[in-house]
Design a protein around this nucleic acid. Structure first.
Lengths: 141, 141
DNA sequence: TTGCGTGCAAAGGTTTTGCATGGCA
DNA sequence: TGCCATGCAAAACCTTTGCACGCAA
Protein backbone atom coordinates (compact mmCIF):
# COMPACT_ATOMS: atom_id res chain seq x y z
CA UNK A 1 0.00 0.00 0.00
CA UNK A 2 1.17 3.48 -0.83
CA UNK A 3 1.42 6.03 1.92
CA UNK A 4 0.64 8.78 -0.54
CA UNK A 5 3.94 10.58 -0.26
CA UNK A 6 5.23 9.43 -3.63
CA UNK A 7 8.87 9.20 -4.60
CA UNK A 8 11.63 10.77 -2.55
CA UNK A 9 13.06 13.48 -4.73
CA UNK A 10 15.41 16.37 -4.18
CA UNK A 11 12.62 18.81 -5.04
CA UNK A 12 10.08 17.42 -2.61
CA UNK A 13 12.63 17.41 0.21
CA UNK A 14 13.79 20.96 -0.52
CA UNK A 15 10.22 22.29 -0.46
CA UNK A 16 9.39 20.43 2.74
CA UNK A 17 12.61 21.57 4.42
CA UNK A 18 11.84 25.18 3.63
CA UNK A 19 8.26 24.91 4.86
CA UNK A 20 9.46 23.38 8.12
CA UNK A 21 12.16 26.01 8.51
CA UNK A 22 9.48 28.68 8.13
CA UNK A 23 6.79 26.86 10.06
CA UNK A 24 6.04 29.90 12.20
CA UNK A 25 5.22 32.07 9.23
CA UNK A 26 3.30 31.72 6.04
CA UNK A 27 5.08 31.62 2.72
CA UNK A 28 4.06 32.04 -0.90
CA UNK A 29 5.10 30.05 -3.93
CA UNK A 30 7.25 33.03 -4.84
CA UNK A 31 9.04 32.87 -1.49
CA UNK A 32 9.75 29.19 -1.89
CA UNK A 33 10.96 29.54 -5.46
CA UNK A 34 13.19 32.48 -4.61
CA UNK A 35 14.71 30.85 -1.56
CA UNK A 36 15.46 27.57 -3.31
CA UNK A 37 17.03 29.37 -6.23
CA UNK A 38 19.35 31.34 -3.94
CA UNK A 39 20.23 28.08 -2.27
CA UNK A 40 21.38 26.74 -5.61
CA UNK A 41 18.61 24.15 -5.49
CA UNK A 42 16.26 25.65 -8.04
CA UNK A 43 12.85 24.00 -8.39
CA UNK A 44 10.36 24.92 -11.11
CA UNK A 45 7.24 26.68 -9.91
CA UNK A 46 5.07 24.02 -11.53
CA UNK A 47 6.65 21.46 -9.26
CA UNK A 48 6.17 23.67 -6.23
CA UNK A 49 2.47 24.09 -6.98
CA UNK A 50 2.05 20.38 -7.53
CA UNK A 51 3.77 19.44 -4.28
CA UNK A 52 1.80 21.98 -2.30
CA UNK A 53 -1.40 20.48 -3.66
CA UNK A 54 -0.35 17.06 -2.51
CA UNK A 55 0.81 18.27 0.88
CA UNK A 56 -2.52 20.02 1.25
CA UNK A 57 -4.40 16.81 0.54
CA UNK A 58 -2.24 14.96 3.05
CA UNK A 59 -2.90 17.66 5.61
CA UNK A 60 0.78 18.54 5.94
CA UNK A 61 0.32 22.16 4.99
CA UNK A 62 -2.46 24.68 5.31
CA UNK A 63 -3.43 27.22 2.69
CA UNK A 64 -4.60 30.77 3.41
CA UNK A 65 -5.53 33.85 1.55
CA UNK A 66 -4.59 37.15 3.07
CA UNK A 67 -6.47 40.33 2.23
CA UNK A 68 -4.52 42.77 0.15
CA UNK A 69 -2.17 40.17 -1.26
CA UNK A 70 -2.40 38.54 -4.65
CA UNK A 71 -0.86 35.15 -4.04
CA UNK A 72 -1.89 32.32 -1.75
CA UNK A 73 -0.05 31.67 1.52
CA UNK A 74 1.02 28.28 2.78
CA UNK A 75 2.18 27.13 6.17
CA UNK A 76 3.49 23.86 7.48
CA UNK A 77 0.86 22.10 9.54
CA UNK A 78 2.75 21.19 12.66
CA UNK A 79 1.09 18.43 14.64
CA UNK A 80 -1.45 18.05 11.90
CA UNK A 81 -3.39 15.32 13.64
CA UNK A 82 -3.91 17.27 16.82
CA UNK A 83 -5.08 20.20 14.73
CA UNK A 84 -8.24 18.41 13.78
CA UNK A 85 -9.54 19.01 17.26
CA UNK A 86 -9.18 22.75 17.60
CA UNK A 87 -9.55 25.99 15.72
CA UNK A 88 -6.90 28.25 14.32
CA UNK A 89 -6.64 31.96 14.60
CA UNK A 90 -4.70 33.80 11.94
CA UNK A 91 -3.58 37.33 12.65
CA UNK A 92 -4.15 39.47 9.59
CA UNK A 93 -1.34 41.81 10.59
CA UNK A 94 1.59 39.68 11.65
CA UNK A 95 0.43 36.46 10.03
CA UNK A 96 0.93 34.44 13.19
CA UNK A 97 -1.05 31.21 13.42
CA UNK A 98 -2.48 30.53 16.85
CA UNK A 99 -3.75 27.12 17.90
CA UNK A 100 -6.79 27.75 20.04
CA UNK A 101 -7.10 25.00 22.61
CA UNK A 102 -10.30 25.96 24.29
CA UNK A 103 -13.24 23.84 25.33
CA UNK A 104 -15.67 26.62 24.46
CA UNK A 105 -14.97 26.20 20.78
CA UNK A 106 -15.66 22.48 20.96
CA UNK A 107 -18.98 23.29 22.61
CA UNK A 108 -19.87 25.76 19.89
CA UNK A 109 -19.02 23.16 17.34
CA UNK A 110 -21.36 20.60 18.86
CA UNK A 111 -24.03 23.24 19.10
CA UNK A 112 -23.70 24.15 15.43
CA UNK A 113 -23.90 20.51 14.48
CA UNK A 114 -26.81 19.65 16.76
CA UNK A 115 -28.90 22.74 16.24
CA UNK A 116 -27.90 23.96 12.81
CA UNK A 117 -26.99 20.68 11.15
CA UNK A 118 -23.64 21.92 9.92
CA UNK A 119 -20.52 19.82 10.40
CA UNK A 120 -17.45 22.03 10.66
CA UNK A 121 -14.19 21.13 8.97
CA UNK A 122 -11.60 22.00 11.61
CA UNK A 123 -8.68 21.71 9.31
CA UNK A 124 -9.94 24.18 6.76
CA UNK A 125 -11.65 26.66 9.01
CA UNK A 126 -9.57 29.60 10.13
CA UNK A 127 -10.58 32.59 12.21
CA UNK A 128 -9.11 35.76 10.81
CA UNK A 129 -8.59 38.75 13.04
CA UNK A 130 -6.06 40.77 15.02
CA UNK A 131 -3.93 39.24 17.75
CA UNK A 132 -3.23 40.73 21.15
CA UNK A 133 0.25 41.94 20.30
CA UNK A 134 -0.74 43.64 17.07
CA UNK A 135 -3.76 45.28 18.67
CA UNK A 136 -1.46 46.59 21.40
CA UNK A 137 1.07 47.91 18.94
CA UNK A 138 -1.48 49.74 16.84
CA UNK A 139 -3.12 51.22 19.94
CA UNK A 140 0.25 52.69 20.95
CA UNK A 141 0.59 54.81 17.86
CA UNK B 1 -17.69 70.76 -3.19
CA UNK B 2 -17.77 67.36 -4.76
CA UNK B 3 -19.50 64.55 -2.93
CA UNK B 4 -17.19 62.04 -4.47
CA UNK B 5 -19.82 60.11 -6.36
CA UNK B 6 -18.90 61.51 -9.75
CA UNK B 7 -21.19 61.55 -12.75
CA UNK B 8 -24.43 59.63 -12.83
CA UNK B 9 -24.00 57.05 -15.53
CA UNK B 10 -25.88 53.97 -16.62
CA UNK B 11 -22.91 51.82 -15.70
CA UNK B 12 -22.51 53.14 -12.18
CA UNK B 13 -26.22 52.71 -11.49
CA UNK B 14 -26.31 49.18 -12.90
CA UNK B 15 -23.39 48.09 -10.72
CA UNK B 16 -24.84 49.68 -7.61
CA UNK B 17 -28.28 48.17 -8.27
CA UNK B 18 -26.79 44.72 -8.57
CA UNK B 19 -24.74 45.10 -5.40
CA UNK B 20 -27.83 46.17 -3.50
CA UNK B 21 -29.89 43.35 -4.97
CA UNK B 22 -27.25 40.88 -3.80
CA UNK B 23 -26.55 42.59 -0.51
CA UNK B 24 -26.87 39.30 1.35
CA UNK B 25 -24.20 37.61 -0.72
CA UNK B 26 -20.60 37.95 -1.69
CA UNK B 27 -20.23 38.82 -5.35
CA UNK B 28 -17.21 38.84 -7.61
CA UNK B 29 -16.42 41.03 -10.58
CA UNK B 30 -17.27 38.00 -12.72
CA UNK B 31 -20.73 37.73 -11.13
CA UNK B 32 -21.43 41.40 -11.78
CA UNK B 33 -20.21 41.28 -15.36
CA UNK B 34 -22.17 38.13 -16.13
CA UNK B 35 -25.38 39.38 -14.60
CA UNK B 36 -25.29 42.74 -16.34
CA UNK B 37 -24.58 41.11 -19.66
CA UNK B 38 -27.56 38.78 -19.32
CA UNK B 39 -29.63 41.81 -18.43
CA UNK B 40 -28.68 43.37 -21.74
CA UNK B 41 -26.82 46.11 -19.88
CA UNK B 42 -23.26 45.00 -20.51
CA UNK B 43 -20.55 46.90 -18.68
CA UNK B 44 -16.85 46.40 -19.33
CA UNK B 45 -14.90 44.75 -16.55
CA UNK B 46 -12.49 47.68 -16.45
CA UNK B 47 -15.38 49.93 -15.53
CA UNK B 48 -16.58 47.49 -12.89
CA UNK B 49 -13.15 47.39 -11.26
CA UNK B 50 -12.90 51.15 -11.32
CA UNK B 51 -16.30 51.68 -9.76
CA UNK B 52 -15.67 49.11 -7.09
CA UNK B 53 -12.47 50.93 -6.20
CA UNK B 54 -14.38 54.17 -5.80
CA UNK B 55 -17.20 52.58 -3.86
CA UNK B 56 -14.57 51.05 -1.61
CA UNK B 57 -13.03 54.44 -0.92
CA UNK B 58 -16.43 55.86 -0.16
CA UNK B 59 -17.10 52.97 2.18
CA UNK B 60 -20.16 51.80 0.23
CA UNK B 61 -18.79 48.32 -0.38
CA UNK B 62 -16.48 45.97 1.46
CA UNK B 63 -13.82 43.90 -0.22
CA UNK B 64 -12.35 40.68 1.03
CA UNK B 65 -10.91 37.41 -0.06
CA UNK B 66 -12.35 34.06 0.85
CA UNK B 67 -10.23 30.94 1.28
CA UNK B 68 -10.48 28.64 -1.67
CA UNK B 69 -11.53 31.32 -4.14
CA UNK B 70 -9.39 33.02 -6.71
CA UNK B 71 -11.18 36.31 -7.19
CA UNK B 72 -11.99 39.04 -4.71
CA UNK B 73 -15.43 39.23 -3.12
CA UNK B 74 -17.42 42.40 -2.69
CA UNK B 75 -20.49 43.16 -0.65
CA UNK B 76 -22.68 46.20 -0.30
CA UNK B 77 -21.73 47.88 2.95
CA UNK B 78 -25.18 48.37 4.47
CA UNK B 79 -25.75 44.71 4.81
CA UNK B 80 -22.10 44.23 5.48
CA UNK B 81 -22.54 46.02 8.78
CA UNK B 82 -25.04 43.38 9.83
CA UNK B 83 -22.62 40.70 8.71
CA UNK B 84 -20.11 41.94 11.25
CA UNK B 85 -22.27 40.50 13.95
CA UNK B 86 -22.51 36.91 12.87
CA UNK B 87 -20.49 34.13 11.34
CA UNK B 88 -20.76 32.61 7.93
CA UNK B 89 -20.86 28.94 7.14
CA UNK B 90 -19.81 27.79 3.72
CA UNK B 91 -20.67 24.31 2.53
CA UNK B 92 -17.72 22.68 0.83
CA UNK B 93 -20.01 20.57 -1.33
CA UNK B 94 -22.76 22.84 -2.62
CA UNK B 95 -20.98 26.14 -1.97
CA UNK B 96 -23.94 27.67 -0.19
CA UNK B 97 -23.22 30.54 2.18
CA UNK B 98 -25.22 30.46 5.39
CA UNK B 99 -25.56 33.45 7.69
CA UNK B 100 -25.50 32.02 11.19
CA UNK B 101 -27.59 34.18 13.44
CA UNK B 102 -26.96 32.56 16.75
CA UNK B 103 -26.22 34.13 20.11
CA UNK B 104 -23.81 31.33 20.99
CA UNK B 105 -21.36 32.53 18.37
CA UNK B 106 -21.42 36.05 19.75
CA UNK B 107 -20.66 34.63 23.17
CA UNK B 108 -17.74 32.64 21.83
CA UNK B 109 -16.44 35.73 20.17
CA UNK B 110 -16.51 37.75 23.37
CA UNK B 111 -14.84 34.88 25.13
CA UNK B 112 -12.04 34.71 22.57
CA UNK B 113 -11.52 38.44 22.85
CA UNK B 114 -11.65 38.58 26.64
CA UNK B 115 -9.67 35.47 27.43
CA UNK B 116 -7.44 35.01 24.41
CA UNK B 117 -7.03 38.65 23.33
CA UNK B 118 -7.91 37.94 19.73
CA UNK B 119 -10.38 40.17 17.93
CA UNK B 120 -12.19 38.20 15.26
CA UNK B 121 -12.88 39.72 11.89
CA UNK B 122 -16.42 38.52 11.22
CA UNK B 123 -16.28 39.69 7.72
CA UNK B 124 -13.44 37.50 6.64
CA UNK B 125 -13.94 34.50 8.84
CA UNK B 126 -15.81 31.67 7.23
CA UNK B 127 -16.55 28.27 8.72
CA UNK B 128 -16.08 25.51 6.18
CA UNK B 129 -17.89 22.24 6.45
CA UNK B 130 -20.83 20.20 5.21
CA UNK B 131 -24.38 21.47 5.38
CA UNK B 132 -27.43 19.50 6.47
CA UNK B 133 -28.74 18.91 2.95
CA UNK B 134 -25.43 17.68 1.56
CA UNK B 135 -24.81 15.43 4.55
CA UNK B 136 -28.25 13.93 4.04
CA UNK B 137 -27.70 13.41 0.33
CA UNK B 138 -24.35 11.70 0.76
CA UNK B 139 -25.74 9.45 3.54
CA UNK B 140 -28.43 8.23 1.15
CA UNK B 141 -26.01 6.81 -1.37
C1' DT C 1 -16.99 72.84 -23.92
C1' DT C 2 -14.64 70.55 -20.15
C1' DG C 3 -13.23 66.85 -17.91
C1' DC C 4 -14.58 62.58 -16.06
C1' DG C 5 -16.38 57.98 -17.65
C1' DT C 6 -16.00 54.05 -20.69
C1' DG C 7 -14.16 50.07 -22.87
C1' DC C 8 -10.86 47.89 -25.95
C1' DA C 9 -6.43 46.11 -26.10
C1' DA C 10 -2.43 45.07 -23.91
C1' DA C 11 0.36 44.22 -19.97
C1' DG C 12 1.42 42.10 -15.44
C1' DG C 13 0.94 38.63 -12.01
C1' DT C 14 -0.62 34.02 -10.29
C1' DT C 15 -1.90 29.36 -11.13
C1' DT C 16 -2.90 25.39 -14.19
C1' DT C 17 -2.23 22.26 -18.10
C1' DG C 18 0.18 19.70 -22.01
C1' DC C 19 3.90 17.26 -23.15
C1' DA C 20 8.44 15.45 -23.67
C1' DT C 21 12.09 14.19 -20.71
C1' DG C 22 14.21 12.71 -16.29
C1' DG C 23 14.74 9.77 -12.39
C1' DC C 24 13.10 6.74 -8.37
C1' DA C 25 12.13 2.14 -7.14
C1' DT D 1 11.51 -1.44 -16.83
C1' DG D 2 7.38 1.02 -15.27
C1' DC D 3 5.66 4.82 -13.43
C1' DC D 4 5.71 8.93 -11.30
C1' DA D 5 8.17 13.49 -11.09
C1' DT D 6 9.98 17.47 -13.36
C1' DG D 7 10.06 21.70 -15.88
C1' DC D 8 9.48 24.33 -20.07
C1' DA D 9 6.11 26.58 -22.74
C1' DA D 10 1.66 27.88 -23.28
C1' DA D 11 -2.81 28.64 -21.66
C1' DA D 12 -6.14 30.26 -18.41
C1' DC D 13 -7.44 33.60 -15.04
C1' DC D 14 -7.75 37.88 -12.41
C1' DT D 15 -6.58 42.64 -12.25
C1' DT D 16 -4.44 46.92 -13.78
C1' DT D 17 -2.95 50.39 -17.17
C1' DG D 18 -2.77 53.16 -21.61
C1' DC D 19 -5.31 55.46 -24.76
C1' DA D 20 -8.88 57.15 -27.80
C1' DC D 21 -13.52 58.12 -27.78
C1' DG D 22 -18.11 59.00 -25.37
C1' DC D 23 -20.99 61.55 -22.59
C1' DA D 24 -22.70 64.11 -18.20
C1' DA D 25 -22.83 68.64 -16.52
Amino acid sequence: MNNGTGYKTRQRQAILDFLIEKKDEHVTVGNISEHLEKDGAKVGVTTIYRHLDKLLEQGLVRKFTVDGTTSACFQYADQAEKCREHFHLKCEKCGRLIHLNCSRTAELCSHIFDEHGFEIDFFRTVFYGICKECAYLSAEE
